[in-house]
């Protein structure tokens, strides 16, 4: 038996059980759901607030630890968050960026927030990331996460994530829906379909 799979199944099973108890309408799609964030809901006093980085580089927030950026994954409101992990040297990541830009544009003024978290190496921020951002003028918010102790935080983003980039997480606390996409997306429509499902109350 695949131990990781079993763990995931147990978590989804828990979710199934939870939705059965409450008669939640989401149970029909529960097999496609990511397990809910394993982090304790009330552990972080800053929960609900958008995190402030301890430093910035040309106006880009730079987070040195996952702990500091964690509130991005715990926003307790009715906005749908679309969070993409990328890096300038990652070809499939750069290839799919226009879809995230298009999504951002399509939902401007609505309760949707697209966040692009760069995992560029510390020594490449000035030499690669800043010139890239200067050239591309990305509209969605760009954050930098430098925490290289990946094993400590990959599962906190989503237990389904193997660690390969690109990877995208969508969640909405008000609907209780999540989607984890562990590979590159091929169109803005693919993102839109996922987003609509996450934003939908039923």
């Amino acid at each position: 038996m695949h131990r990781t799979l079993l763990l995931i199944l147990m978590l989804s099973a828990t979710m199934l059980a939870a939705s059965c108890q409450t008669g939640g309408p989401e149970q029909t799609t529960a097999q496609a759901e990511a397990p809910s964030d394993p982090a304790p809901a009330s552990a972080s006093p800053g929960k609900g607030n958008w995190p402030q980085a301890d430093s910035t580089l040309a106006g880009i927030p730079v987070f040195s630890t996952f702990e500091e950026i964690a509130p991005v994954f715990q926003q307790d409101n009715d906005t749908t968050y679309v969070i993409n992990f990328w890096a300038t040297w990652c070809k499939p990541c750069v290839k799919e960026l226009p879809y995230f830009e298009a999504l951002h544009e399509a939902y401007e003024g609505q309760a949707v927030k697209v966040v692009l978290i760069s995992l560029d190496f510390p020594r490449q921020l000035r030499s690669a990331l800043l010139p890239f951002l200067e050239k591309r003028q990305l509209k969605p918010e760009v954050l930098v996460l430098l925490d290289g102790k990946y094993n400590d935080w990959i599962d906190r983003v989503d237990p389904q994530w193997s660690g390969a980039i690109p990877a995208t997480l969508m969640y909405n606390s008000a609907t209780g829906q999540r989607r984890f996409i562990g590979q590159a997306v091929d169109s803005v429509e693919e993102l839109q379909t996922a987003l609509e499902a996450v934003a939908a109350t039923e």
Partner: peptide, 13 residues
């Protein structure tokens, strides 16, 4: 994954 070309009509499921 990654650069696999998939039809755009593929759903999130």
């Amino acid at each position: 994954e990654a650069t696999t070309a998939t039809e755009p009509e593929k759903t999130e499921e």
